[in-house]
């Protein structure tokens, strides 16, 4: 049953991607075009999801926002998982002073409220700046899990066996340790995409992330909030929820497929 959930997530995600990237090809309006004959209109054949107060096409805008959000979320998740993998395995395998220093750094970042620093560092810059800043605050917990897992793998009999055969340390990591971490990291990366997209949306909602004239799903929800027309905000919010739901389903499905015995060998 749970793998079905994962499949549903994958299908949903593919559909969202298709919509976001193929949608503009069929849309009669560009995201930055303004229709001076239609302000704040209901959905119609001319504007599929209506228009905003300033006469922009909601359908095209929403897709543009979705592309931004997807890009930021994916990049931030890949970056954060990569950082977590490197730091976690290094700390776990090396132990000693390196381990303590790295984990202490992670603790420091955990004490700093991420929201604050992201908000401080992100403003003003172009959207790619958001990626490393978001990623910098999402790797710590994963790194700790990776470290713990590396430490326990290091004591596994088949890893010991390889070491007693004379296999070198880096080769042991590549051949025997990393395949076991791969599933964890794949799952983590996909779940982090959801977290990153929500974080980006939140920051942009508050006006601290993506800035006008650029749009993301977060800015669209913010613009529409409180306005009389619920179309623009509703479309963006719905798409946002759909993306996060798809990614979470996919992540959980992956976990079940890749790691059927979560505690076993």
């Amino acid at each position: 049953m749970r793998t079905r959930r994962g499949a549903a997530g994958a299908v949903l995600l593919v559909l969202v991607f298709l919509l976001a990237f193929a949608g503009p090809l069929v849309s009669p309006w560009g995201w930055d075009e303004t229709d001076f004959t239609a302000f704040r209109q209901e959905p119609s054949a001319r504007h599929w999801l209506g228009t905003t107060q300033s006469g922009r096409d909601v359908f095209a805008l929403t897709l543009r926002g979705a592309r931004r959000s997807l890009a930021i979320g994916l990049l931030a998740a890949v970056l954060s998982t990569g950082v977590a993998a490197v730091i976690g395995t290094a700390a776990g395998f090396a132990g000693g002073a390196l381990d303590r220093a790295l984990m202490w750094g992670a603790d420091l970042l955990l004490v700093l409220p991420p929201f604050l620093v992201v908000a401080l560092l992100a403003p003003g810059g172009a959207w790619p700046m958001l990626v490393p800043v978001l990623a910098a605050f999402m790797w710590m917990l994963t790194a700790k899990v990776v470290r713990a897992m590396t430490r326990s793998l290091r004591e596994r009999e088949y890893v010991l066996a390889a070491r007693f055969l004379g296999v070198s340390g880096p080769r042991v990591i590549v051949r025997h340790v990393s395949p076991r971490l791969a599933s964890l990291l794949a799952v983590d990366a996909s779940l982090t995409v959801g977290v990153a997209i929500i974080a980006e949306g939140g920051l942009s909602y508050l006006g601290l992330g993506v800035r006008p004239p650029d749009v993301s799903l977060g800015t669209l929800v913010a613009e529409g909030h409180g306005a009389a027309a619920t179309w623009p905000a509703g479309a963006a919010a719905g798409l946002l929820v759909l993306i996060v739901l798809a990614v979470n389903l996919l992540g959980d499905g992956l976990r079940d497929v890749l790691d059927p015995l979560r505690d076993g060998r």
């Binding site: 009999e157 088949y158 010991l160 066996a161 390889a162 007693f164 055969l165 004379g166 395949p179 060998r265």
Partner: peptide
């Protein structure tokens, strides 16, 4: 490393001592 050729080990739990993948 050269000496490891002459000294080898067999572990207790054959399930745990073989890489499952």
């Amino acid at each position: 490393k050269a000496l490891r050729r002459d000294v080898q080990v067999v572990f207790q739990d054959p399930a745990a001592s073989l890489n499952p993948r």
